[in-house]
Amino acid sequence: MKAIHYDAIILGAGAAGLSAAIYLSRAKLKTLLINEGSIGGQMVLTHAVANYPGVHETSGRDISLIMKKQAKEFGADIESNVEITKLDLSGKEKLVEIDDDEIFTSDVVILATGGKPRKLGIPSETKFKGFGISYCATCDGDFYAGKDIVVVGGGNSALEEAVSLTKLVKSITIVHQFDNFQAHEYAIEQAKKNDKISFIMESEITEILGEELVTAVKVQNQKTGKEQLINTDGIFIYIGYIPNTDKFKDVIKLNNRNEILTDENMKTNVDGIFAAGDVREKKFRQITTAVSDGTIAALNAIEYIQTNKK
């Protein structure tokens, strides 16, 4: 199999990766964007983005489609919905194989692989996906009209989605592992004043019960160890995101939450490898900050390529 060489390969086509692709290809560097999931990443989860400067409220999908168009128009190649079957980032020339049948090499790699929703980690979670377990209130809320449900989590997504679900469901029990919420004050207030919502704090779901569909969950108090059974028709899970770093964790330096460590130029511990967006250690994870990271990574990558070509 003959490898095709690029100046830069970007892994991940979310806000960070797409931004990096725009800058690299506009600088006339041969650029390849490889994405294992759908173009846009987490952006497509947001129906209404109201805080992207210069753009009046629009959907995350629309922003990503425009970013993709920009990257393509400047000349970037895009491989989307593929599987990375081999990755070698350690040498001077980096290598990426996709779908077991195409090999690409490059001088630079930008890791912009973002994050994926954290799962409960209970064996029956997969079995009940779509049969009582959901990760998207706007997608599946209708199926739970008039029913009793559980929402797991205590951040903005959990509380905001719970409040929006109260328009459809009979009752909501929010199960949260800590004794306080990690959401904005406004979201907490809205959830607390809603009559349909009750709270079980400092507790975790230990078991999901049901035959074909979910019928109940076992919830354990983290302090006392006491378990209680809650009858429910569904579980909506919003317990945060984990970084997609599995594929390169042996080569790239990560922190104890498995996020990539970079300097302010988005450089990682490996020469020629940069990281951008939610996948790196940082405090604020937004589309704007991912775009900023992608830009900085790309500009530094351009400098790196030019210096090393001399």
């Binding site: 759908s38 173009i39 497509v44 989860l45 129906h47 919905n81 593929v82 998207c136």
Partner: peptide, 16 residues
Amino acid sequence: GRMGPMCLPVYDAMES
């Protein structure tokens, strides 16, 4: 489906 986050990846997979 609809144009939501659970549906889009399936359409994308089919297209590819």
